[in-house]
């Protein structure tokens, strides 16, 4: 099958690859570019572990055609920390013991990051709504909700999201 070129910015760096016309962004990020932060959980857009930001919007990379990302800004959980300094959401997830197996964590952090960028002081219901597309099988969600609220209270949303 003929491959098509695609180029975008990933976590602030220019990246490019060749993809099948029907290839999804998740496969390109993981297998093509070696960013293993987004995970495969269902391939059907039902679990949220592949969540990335495309031009600041949370998107399911398993349902996103890779070629549709030409020229766009893609951000994953790999790029959240500022060098050695954790993003306040990352710190809040640690402080609140919001990760157990850790498999849903990159997608959860990304969904939360998108929320706080738009809504720096969300209510609990708004946090719940924001992560309602992300499945966690370990924690029962409560520590994740607490972590996002704590990060917001600490001013995380005021920073560069």
């Amino acid at each position: 099958m003929a491959k098509l070129p695609v180029q975008f910015r990933l976590n602030g760096s220019d990246r490019a690859g060749f993809v099948d016309p029907a290839g999804n962004l998740l496969d390109l990020l993981r297998r093509g570019l070696g960013d293993f932060a987004p995970k495969y959980g269902c391939g059907q857009g039902t679990c949220g572990v592949c969540t990335v930001l495309i031009d600041g919007e949370p998107q399911l990379s398993c349902l996103t055609l890779a070629i549709s990302c030409e020229g766009r800004q893609i951000e994953t959980a790999s790029g959240m920390a500022d060098g050695p300094n954790l993003h306040p959401l990352q710190q809040a997830f640690m402080d609140n013991f919001a990760a157990q197996c850790g498999f849903c964590t990159p997608g959860m952090l990304t969904a939360a990051r998108a929320l706080l960028a738009k809504n720096p002081n969300p209510t609990r219901d708004e946090v719940v709504e924001a992560i309602s597309g992300n499945i966690c099988r370990c924690t029962g969600y409560e520590p994740i909700i607490a972590a996002i609220l704590a990060a917001a209270a600490g001013g995380a949303g005021m920073r560069r999201a």
């Binding site: 993981r30 293993f36 932060a37 995970k39 495969y40 994953t76 959980a77 790999s78 959240m80 920390a81 954790l86 990352q90 710190q91 997830f93 640690m94 013991f97 990760a99 850790g102 498999f103 964590t105 990159p106 952090l109």
Partner: peptide, 16 residues
């Protein structure tokens, strides 16, 4: 937890 920094930075490596 020892594994928490890896989880929140997405550096934890699963089998895939």
């Amino acid at each position: 937890r020892q594994d928490a920094p890896g989880h929140v930075t997405a550096r934890t490596r699963f089998f895939d």
